[in-house]
Simulated scan of single mutants.
Amino acid sequence: MSDASQPGALPLFYRDPQPLSAETHGAWRLRDGDAAFAADTAFAPLVVAEIAAAARDYPVVFSAGESAQPVAVLGLEQRNLFVENGRWADDAYVPAYVRRYPFGFVATVNPDGFILAVDAASDRLMQTGDEGAPLFDGDQPSALTQDAMAFCRAFQGEAEATRAFGEALRAQGLLIDRRADAVLADGRKLGLDGFQVIDTERFANLDEAVVVEWHRRGWLALANFHLASLERFNALLTRQGKAGSAEPAPKPTKSKKA
């Protein structure tokens, strides 16, 4: 579970992100699709506004990179246990990062600027024909594209708040490395590493001034949602068991000293 923000790396799911333009994509259409594109990933990025909802269904941890990106753990191997036959489980929250696909924002030359893009490699996009909803009405964005723009703009705003939370966690030295292990009934071993969690002892001993500030900013609640979500590793194992029994329950263990 590495940091996806490395220079030159494409964002998760995206293979050919292109800035949308009427000149290039004027005839393109988007047809209905499923979540098959997310079937082979064991994690999905989260923003702070959805940590509470995601924590009810997934372990929420942090990437080990500089960004301290919160992520939902979706499986114990290179597989999403919440997607079956292209359908996301009805009883589980779908992260906003997944819901916005194949749209997204890409940075412009202006370091503070972003433009709406689409993954041209998505099999939902039709370059010709009448199937699906149009991306443009003439030279203007269609209602579909305008909705995508609004969704991605809101997501980008939350991304800024998410970075601030991650920076605060690092500034207080709260994040420590962890890994989760399980042994399948057939003897296969599964291991998930490269993620971090909040150290409960350090969290309990935050300075009073920091506690007050974090309470006002909502960060105390986010930290507690994260810590409570770690119990979801057991539920994750139950899902794994339906696809192939595993025992015992994976326990997040310290992989090295912070």
Rank of each mutant, 00 (worst) to 15 (best):
T162M: 07
A133K: 13
S142I: 02
V212S: 11
Y58C: 06
L81K: 03
L20G: 08
S245H: 10
A42N: 15
N85H: 14
A185M: 09
A121P: 06
K254R: 15
K256M: 09
R239Y: 09
L236G: 02
L220Y: 03
T238R: 15
Y101Q: 03
A180H: 08
F136M: 08
W219A: 00
E247N: 11
W219D: 04
D40W: 12
R170I: 01
L30T: 01
S255C: 00
D199Y: 11
A54M: 04
H226D: 06
L135F: 13
T238C: 01
Y101P: 02
P95S: 10
D147I: 07
D139E: 15
E201G: 10
G104R: 05
A4Y: 05
A121Y: 03
Y101D: 05
A52C: 03
T108W: 08
L12M: 14
R163N: 01
F195L: 01
A53T: 00
R99I: 09
V83P: 04
S245P: 03
A148Y: 09
A171Y: 00
A49Q: 11
R170G: 00
A258L: 15
Y58E: 05
F195Y: 07
F195W: 06
L46R: 06
E158H: 05
H226S: 09
D91S: 12
A4V: 05
N234E: 15
A89W: 03
V98Y: 01
F82V: 02
R124F: 02
G191T: 12
P45L: 02
D119W: 04
D119G: 03
Q196R: 11
M126W: 03
R202Q: 13
E84K: 12
G8T: 07
G65R: 02
L76C: 09
R15A: 12
R202N: 12
E160M: 07
S122H: 08
F37D: 06
A54L: 05
E160P: 00
F225E: 14
A150D: 14
E231Q: 12
V197G: 05
A159H: 07
L237M: 14
T24G: 07
F13K: 02
R232H: 11
V109A: 15
Y93D: 05
F114M: 10
F43Y: 14
A9G: 09
A150H: 13
Q6C: 02
D112Q: 15
L175D: 02
L74Y: 04
T238D: 15
L222M: 06
P141A: 11
R29K: 11
A235S: 13
G86A: 11
G187I: 07
T128I: 04
S2A: 10
F82G: 00
I198D: 04
I176W: 06
Q240E: 07
L125A: 04
S255H: 11
L135V: 06
L10W: 00
A39E: 15
D130G: 08
S21V: 09
R56T: 09
S142T: 09
Y14L: 10
S122C: 09
K257L: 15
V211L: 14
G157C: 00
G129E: 06
G244A: 15
G157T: 05
A204V: 02
A54W: 01
W214Y: 13
S122A: 14
F114R: 14
F233I: 00
S122D: 01
S255L: 12
A107H: 12
L10Q: 08
G218V: 03
K254F: 13
K242Y: 10
T200E: 15
P45I: 02
Q196S: 01
F37E: 02
L236V: 05
